[in-house]
């Protein structure tokens, strides 16, 4: 059956027609063209399709599109939009070798974000627990865990620098962005 749903996708209120049996993954990839969310297994066993719905990491391959009615959905495409620059988690994955083939990366980053938004100081055990549902075949996880730890430190620091004023707790402040740009030039 077709119905119309409204929800907030990466900060934008949108309204679209869906079929009842569509998964959120189908809606994002096939209908809305947001190809950043990946399908690795279709059964909730690899985490490549992870998105955040109302602050919770979920497998979009098992989540019905109809169920996002009235909710906030964040996908990998939504992380860098506010500033045009990379989110600290994305930047950290880039800087610390957390990305090889990259297919698990969007889901991995979304799982990390759901955790670090709540607790940027999460210890390694907590990070492993939160990321255990995201399979990576390339990295052996070592540099992914490093990336998440470094991102957490950066996010905690950003919060300390007053980013709390920003809407999205993960958004880079102008101040830290300038500093970042400065680092690149020198």
């Amino acid at each position: 059956m077709t119905k119309t749903i409204s929800f907030i996708l990466n900060g934008d209120e949108i309204s679209c027609d869906i079929q009842d049996h569509w998964t959120l993954l189908h809606l994002l990839r096939e209908e809305l063209g947001l190809i950043g969310t990946k399908e690795g297994c279709g059964n909730g066993e690899c985490g490549a399709c992870t998105v955040i719905v109302d602050q919770l990491a979920v497998n979009s391959c098992l989540y019905l599109a109809a169920d996002v009615q009235g909710k906030q959905v964040q996908t990998i495409e939504g992380l860098a939009v506010h500033t045009g620059s990379l989110h600290p988690i994305q930047q950290s994955f880039v800087d610390n070798g957390g990305i090889q083939c990259g297919f698990c990366t969007p889901g991995m980053i979304m799982s990390a974000k759901a955790l670090l938004d709540k607790d940027p100081k999460a210890d390694q055990e907590a990070v492993k627990h939160a990321l255990a549902g995201n399979i990576c075949r390339c990295t052996g996880y070592v540099q992914i865990l490093d990336s998440v730890a470094a991102a957490g430190r950066q996010m905690a620091k950003n919060q300390g620098e007053g980013a709390a004023a920003a809407k999205d707790p993960g958004t880079i402040t102008q101040q830290s962005m300038n500093k970042k740009a400065g680092e690149v030039i020198t």
Partner: peptide, 12 residues
């Protein structure tokens, strides 16, 4: 319950 599937699955 803390080790059923993944956190994503436990969230749903």
């Amino acid at each position: 319950v803390s080790n059923i599937g993944s956190l994503q699955v436990r969230n749903m």
